[in-house]
Design a protein around this nucleic acid. Structure first.
Length: 893
RNA sequence: GCCCCUGUGGCGGAAUCGGUAGACGCGGCAGACUCAAAAUCUGUUUCCCGCAAGGGAGUGGGAGUUCGAGUCUCCCCGGGGGCACCA
């Protein structure tokens, strides 16, 4: 006798071991089958998983299982992004070795992932902190070094004072470290860099080919790469031999230039500061200026006059003073600018402060350019209006232009009146024409040229930390920087380290860093920096193709599996990991490892799982299980004190609004959790986790369970064909079944899991209704069996254990994971008759049911015969009837 | 400041092409079963007027295009995100 409720506690472990024994998810290259590589961003093993983490994997598993059922050869691997700072922090806090901490977390999280029935090929599991894995990146690095794609240089870097390490530009968010949130300091250090900028144009251009990526992510990468088209200009420094190199996107404004300025970090500033204590003090001050948003908003535009002058490239009698200015960034362009106060607000603020000329070079062609004298003659209140905009209409009707303290940056007008110095006196050009004229003149005189600049910087990969991949380099007093020979790889991290003091334990290790120079044999020092941990995640997808290869990957296997057909992960990696991985793929192709340029053909960025937050009487965060609702008020269970319900936020340990995985699985089973994670919201949006939602999903599974185990109408045995000539409830159910199959298939391909679930629930409702409606109808049992079996097969990707249990209960001795996706009969997905709405003047006044594809006349006749329509038309003349076949009739009266 | 996304019942959301707005679920309400409860089932649930039949309004606000607009165009408002002293 079947139990009234589905027993997930027994069923879930049982089916998992069946799949495991049969190797159901093992991936083997097979050239005769279409391949499909689905990958979820692999996790950092930080501790325990909660339900918020699972959404990503649940989505990936639906995709993998659906594709498998559709006949694809699916690769669905899982691994661990296992190097990282939390392991070191845990080591310092708990005196546990980072490796021990990491592998324990991998064990726990691996068990957790296994407990939800994800269809991974666990034989391909990798952990990036093992020498087996990182030896390959040491080799790739040495190959990059030889190819000129890696280099060492001294530069200003972002220093995280809490983690005691350098950060890449991508890891600095609003002037703060991405992990610690601490304000980033500037330090000058010698670091290893990877030449990602060499691929800037390719990375930008190829974004256009990634048509299965969200536009949002492509846009963010586009902004990050930040292409600017402009000109490089050379200004001769008076009394010196060298020239000042400046980058501008607006060469057309050169005739409005009134000064040049360089960054405090510019070599010229450093050189001059050595002899000028005032300048040295100013430079020092600039370096301490914060880079946060508030700091920038409030910072005044300040400068220090170096006393140097440069020649204007076109005007022989004009000299421009050179300042060191606090608003010029060394990181962008050349670290030097020319200032055109009329066309740039910062330059204008600066010019007003230091009494520099403001020379308009462009203004709306219809406006009269006021001279200073004309402007001074205006009444005070009229002059005040120019603070808002330099373009004004005077009380006497004259349209005029004069710059007070707002620069004129308008660029949307096609034509300006330009003052292009000797190139042309005031005349009309578009901005683009003016730029071209100036650039041609620059190139003709050897004082500059058209150029393209990118915001993207080379990727600094040195980290002053222990728990990362050692950089395979030795430093020798005689030979300098010497790569470790390939035969000596891997350079393995030492185990015996201590974390008593902050900083890098590799630096303090008594023996590890001492090594004989690979070139001359003299005593040398190992590089003690390790790689940025984004190094590991930049190529792991290629390793999964051949996880045991003695090369980073196997070319044939990689050619078979790559690119990843569907990648799934959080939006937070839109520029970090996803950009680095695209770069690495290009590098690995160049080095002969891969045959593709783009690692991820399809990308889906899933939303977060959010949960209500709770705060107790003292404002402290409370876990959901500490809170209950009494008489509509939230109270703390322990003492009944009132609890404030807060915003619904991303599940996080710090806000305590997490729901433990084990708790949910214990109460409802993994399938209920999976179903809820898929059903309530579209995957790219945030999803609210509620107990009521879990209850609802659990109720649904039991409803299906009862329909199968206690059917109202006896089901024929498995394998009984459905009669071709059904009618009534049986025929209707059959149509519903086939329509659902077609629709769900499409929904899953398009990641509309919430809609797929809704359709399955509709089919379930239809099954329930049909069993009640016509117990005597001929063929109903067979139609019910077909409906139930289709339903179960379609539930397979979402609730896999449940589907197997129900499939067996339906009398099958096969597995759902080995059964093909149901096929919709096209003849059964369309109806013979259609219901059309009838509108009168755009308002719905009735409905008609007519044979499908009825001609216009028939539909019109039926529509006008509707009582509700006739009533609405009473006393009116029909002027026009619009018939949209099979959809709508609109009567215009 | 620039760029992007988004706004639909009490709530999550559906409406693929401009064609019956609110599928499906959550929550609520009423009822059945029960000694009672749980579980389950049935009905109902956008708002307003009405006993009802029926009518009116309605997709953030305003205008427009159209026989017809949640969907297209323009302006405005709210929410979220990205970039940013970027020359």
């Amino acid at each position: 006798m079947a139990s009234e409720r589905y027993n997930f506690r027994e069923a879930e472990p049982k089916w998992r071991s069946v799949w495991e024994e049969r190797g159901s998810f093992r991936a083997v290259e097979d050239p005769d089958k279409p391949k499909y590589y689905v990958l979820e961003m692999f996790p950092y093993p930080s501790g325990r998983l909660h339900v918020g983490h699972i959404r990503n994997y649940a989505i990936g598993d639906v995709v993998a299982r659906h594709r498998r059922a559709k006949g694809y050869n699916v690769l669905h691997p899982m691994g661990w992004d296992a190097f990282g700072l939390p392991a070191e922090n845990a080591a310092m806090a708990n005196r546990v070795h980072p490796a021990e901490w990491t592998f324990e977390n991998i064990r726990v999280m691996g068990e957790q992932l296994r407990s939800i029935g994800l269809s991974y090929d666990w034989e391909r599991e990798i952990a990036t902190c093992t020498p087996d894995y990182y030896v390959h990146e040491q080799r790739i690095f040495l190959e990059m070094l030889r190819a000129g794609l890696a280099y060492r240089k001294e530069s200003w870097v972002n220093w995280d004072p809490v983690d005691h390490t350098v950060l890449a530009n991508e890891q600095v968010v609003d002037g703060r470290g991405w992990r610690t949130g601490a304000p980033v300091e500037k330090r000058k250090l010698t670091q290893w860099f990877l030449r990602i900028t060499e691929y800037a144009e390719d990375l930008l251009e190829s974004l256009k080919t990634l048509d299965r990526w969200p536009d949002r992510v492509r846009l963010m990468q586009e902004n990050w790469i930040g292409k600017s088209v402009g000109a490089q200009m050379l200004f001769q420094i008076k009394g010196r031999k060298d020239r000042l190199e400046v980058f501008t996107t607006r060469p057309d404004t050169i005739f409005g230039a009134s000064f040049c300025a360089v960054s405090a970090d510019h070599p010229l500033a450093e050189e001059l500061a050595a002899k000028d204590p005032g300048l040295a003090a100013f430079v020092e001050e600039c370096r301490h200026l914060g880079t946060s948003e508030e700091a920038i908003e409030t910072a005044e535009k300040r400068g220090y006059d170096t006393g140097l002058k440069v020649a204007h490239p076109f005007l022989a009698d004009v000299e421009l003073p050179v300042y060191v200015a606090n608003f010029v960034l060394m990181e962008y362009g050349t670290g030097a600018i020319f200032g055109c106060p009329a066309g740039d607000q910062r330059d204008l603020d600066f010019a007003r402060r230091y009494g520099l000329p403001v020379i308009p070079v462009l203004w709306p062609q219809t406006a009269h350019l006021l001279s200073d004298a004309e402007f001074a003659a205006l009444p005070a209140e009229t002059r005040a209006a120019f603070s808002g905009s330099p373009h004004q209409t005077l009380p006497d009707g004259r349209e005029v232009f004069h710059i007070a303290d707002t620069a004129y940056t308008e660029t949307s007008r096609p034509l300006y009146t330009y003052r292009l110095g000797p190139l042309s006196e005031a005349t009309q050009y578009s901005v683009d024409e003016a730029k071209d004229l100036v650039i041609k003149a620059l190139e003709a005189s050897g004082k500059g040229e058209a150029t393209v600049r990118y915001r993207l910087r080379d990727w600094g990969v040195s980290r002053q930390r222990y728990w990362g991949c050692p950089i395979p380099i030795a430093h020798c007093d005689h030979c300098g920087v010497v790569p470790v020979p390939e035969s000596d790889l891997p350079v393995v991290l030492p185990d015996d380290i201590d974390f008593d003091k902050p900083g890098n334990p590799l630096d303090r290790h008594p023996t590890w860093k001492h090594v004989d120079c690979p070139r001359c044999g003299a005593a040398a020092r190992r590089e003690t920096d390790t790689f940025d941990t984004f190094f590991e995640s930049s190529w792991y997808f290629a390793r999964f193709a051949a996880p045991n290869s003695d090369r980073a990957t196997d070319k044939a296997a990689a050619d078979y599996w790559l690119p990843v057909d569907q990648y799934i992960g959080g939006i937070e990696h839109a520029v970090l990991h996803l950009l680095y991985a695209r770069f690495f793929t290009r590098v690995m192709r160049r080095l002969g490892y891969l045959g593709v340029d783009e690692p991820f053909a399809g990308l889906m960025t899933q939303g977060m799982v959010v949960h209500e937050t709770y705060r107790g009487p003292e404002g402290e965060w409370l876990y959901p299980e500490e809170v209950e609702t009494r008489d509509g008020e939230a109270v703390r269970i322990a003492d009944g004190k009132p609890v404030a319900r807060g915003r619904h936020e991303k599940m996080s340990k710090s806000k305590k609004n997490v729901v433990g995985l084990e708790k949910v699985i214990d109460a409802y089973g993994a399938d209920t959790m999976r179903l809820l994670l898929l059903s309530d919201s579209p995957p790219e949006r945030d999803l609210e986790w509620t107990d009521a939602g879990a209850e609802g999903a659990w109720r649904y599974l039991n409803r299906v369970w009862r329909l199968v185990t206690a059917p109202a109408v006896a089901l024929p045995p498995a394998g009984t064909p459905v009669p071709g000539d059904l009618d009534g409830a049986a025929a209707e159910l059959r149509r519903k079944t086939h329509k659902t199959i077609a629709a769900v298939d499409e929904d899953l391909v398009d990641f509309r899991f919430n809609r797929a679930v809704a359709r399955l629930r509709e089919l379930t409702n239809a099954i329930g209704e049909a069993s009640e409606a016509g117990s005597a109808a001929p063929g109903l049992g067979a139609a019910l069996r077909e409906a139930l079996e289709s339903l179960v097969l379609m539930l397979g990707p979402m609730t896999p254990h449940f589907a197997e249990e129900v499939w067996a209960a339906l009398g099958h001795d096969t597995l759902v994971v080995d059964t093909a996706w149901p096929v919709a009969d096209p003849a059964l997905t369309v109806d013979d008759s259609v219901t059309m709405a009838v509108q009168v003047n755009g308002k719905v006044r009735g409905q008609i049911t007519v044979p499908k594809d009825s001609d216009r006349e028939a539909a019109e006749r039926a529509a006008l015969g509707e009582p509700g329509v006739a009533r609405a038309l009473d006393g009116k003349t029909v002027r026009k009837v619009i018939v949209v076949p099979n959809r709508i009739v609109n009567v215009v009266a």
